[in-house]
Design a protein around this nucleic acid. Structure first.
Lengths: 196, 196
DNA sequence: ATAATAATTTAGACAAATCTAAAAATAATT
DNA sequence: AATTATTTTTAGATTTGTCTAAATTATTAT
């Protein structure tokens, strides 16, 4: 098993997330996401590249290699399992779990994580509805449709909350809507009117 | 709240434990316990001294200050709560919990630990029978008597297993004796005969 | 297409925590 | 008490991950 420093893990995880939205990850984007100077990013990318975790070409950006992706999925798995634990077992609120899980995710004992997974009943998603990779790194991704594009009358199950602003969370709470709720679009009014 | 590095926390915790047996802690003993060169110990003691965590006099050794003890108790609390969790909730064995707790103890979110404490039902001891400090750092220390000195016919409750050699653990397991068991000394034979 | 702007890398420095080897202080032994 | 042995500290070096400032490469705009 490959061992990483906390710093390395944060890079792998962040590259993984940025890759989802932007394909190739730019040095500057990483710098912003990690609150780290661009020069430091370059240094670390060289290091991770030498370790075979990212493929990195100067001035072009980086992507995770197969091994790198595998490792990143492990970190995401740990993070989301802990989030689930914090929320379901310890009674933390949605907004609080992320910060605490940021620390717990770096405890990388495989047996611990697999036993935690079993203890939680092999959950498919974290409290935000994000999928939890299984022990092999497989992600179960439900067919998802944005609420804005969901057609009228159609019934759907909430699997994820994209917008996590306090206002939206409060509104959902008021209407008692959470992950797993069955919902139906009655009438599609202009979105702007909903948030007020 | 004072923040410590993992290294600093390991020093505080180890000084706390060594203090229990030896009063003043020698540089060399710390070096042995931490698998670290004596020169490095000296450096760190100066640092912790400047932070007001230990009182340190060159060539004499060190002791924890009041604040240092408070911090050490916090670390011990985290360690033992996690050990309890690992053993009671995740089904880890006695021998395994320590190593994993060594990592988890450094996640120092107070709310997390207090919620974990509540989730576990405010346990008084870890799986080895060592007392868990409460949120204020108070330790509940039960009156303890070594089995060898326990008088015949007297009933007692097992609160700790001092000797943790595989043979002893196996024997206890066979006889179904664990922390919390009520036991009675029927007849005090010479100890040597017991272990065979 | 060339100049201006933005992004990235290089170079050199720094703090934390460690190390080894040598010097200094303390303890033990004859 | 003097010498030997042990323990501890000092001095100087190393690694990791970071920084700033300057140089370089890529992009954008005129």
């Amino acid at each position: 098993m490959i061992r990483f420093s906390v710093a390395e893990e944060n890079y792998l995880k962040t590259i993984y997330h940025l890759q989802h939205t932007s394909g190739i990850v730019a040095t500057n984007d990483l710098a912003t996401a990690l609150h780290t100077a661009p020069a430091s990013i370059t240094d670390m990318l060289k290091k991770l590249s030498k370790k075979g975790m990212v493929s990195y070409k100067a001035y072009y950006g980086c992507t995770l290699t197969a091994t790198g992706t595998e490792q990143a999925l492990g970190i995401v798995r740990r993070h989301r399992l802990w989030e689930h634990f914090l929320s379901q077992k310890l009674g933390f609120s949605w907004e609080e779990v992320h910060e605490v899980a940021e620390e717990l995710e770096h405890v990388s004992n495989e047996k611990l994580i697999n036993k935690l997974d079993a203890f939680l009943g092999f959950p498919r998603t974290d409290p935000h509805g994000d999928p939890i990779p299984d022990a092999k790194g497989k992600i179960f991704q439900p067919r998802q449709v944005s609420l804005a594009t969901l057609s009228e009358k159609k019934i759907a199950v909430v699997t994820q909350i994209g917008n996590q602003s306090p206002q939206v969370l409060e509104m959902l709470d008021e209407k008692n809507i959470s992950i797993g709720s069955r919902i139906q679009v009655i009438k599609n009014i202009h979105l702007m009117n909903l948030w007020r």
